[in-house]
């Protein structure tokens, strides 16, 4: 299972970075969204993989059995902040497009 999650992270980062390197704003934003999934999963994975034991305390269960709550708390806010950041760069992209008339990152249409 660990290898599977690690591969998922690898695929997300690779796809995300490839899109981030594109020339138009929209693919860059989609790429960043993919990358933030990867970042969240990576942090999540540092808490190791535990099935069926969410960190909700029950009587008679040893503490070692629960899933690690700390990465979860960190990621929970990261997801919401990630949304805010995606929204913010989207709006930057929109106002850039409206003001410059192009969505090329370098603000110039490639001359071909």
């Amino acid at each position: 299972m660990e290898a599977l999650i690690a591969s998922a992270i690898a695929v997300l980062v690779a796809c995300g970075f490839y899109l981030v390197l594109r020339a138009r704003t929209f693919p860059v934003i989609v790429g960043l969204a993919l990358f933030s999934y990867a970042a969240n999963l990576y942090i999540f994975s540092t808490g190791r993989l535990t099935s069926g034991m969410p960190p909700v305390l029950q009587k008679g269960v040893p503490l070692e059995a629960y899933a690690d709550p700390l990465p979860q708390a960190l990621i929970l806010t990261a997801i919401v902040i990630g949304f805010a950041m995606t929204a913010f760069i989207l709006v930057l992209a929109i106002s850039g497009y409206v003001e410059l008339g192009t969505d090329h990152l370098d603000a110039k249409e490639q001359s071909r």
Binding site: A8, A10, S45
Partner: peptide
Amino acid sequence: ASVAGLGTGWMSYMVMTRPQDSIS
């Protein structure tokens, strides 16, 4: 992008296969 992906994935794998010692 592929190198970055492989590196991150491998790093994650290295972490997950080691014993955990955290403040959790």
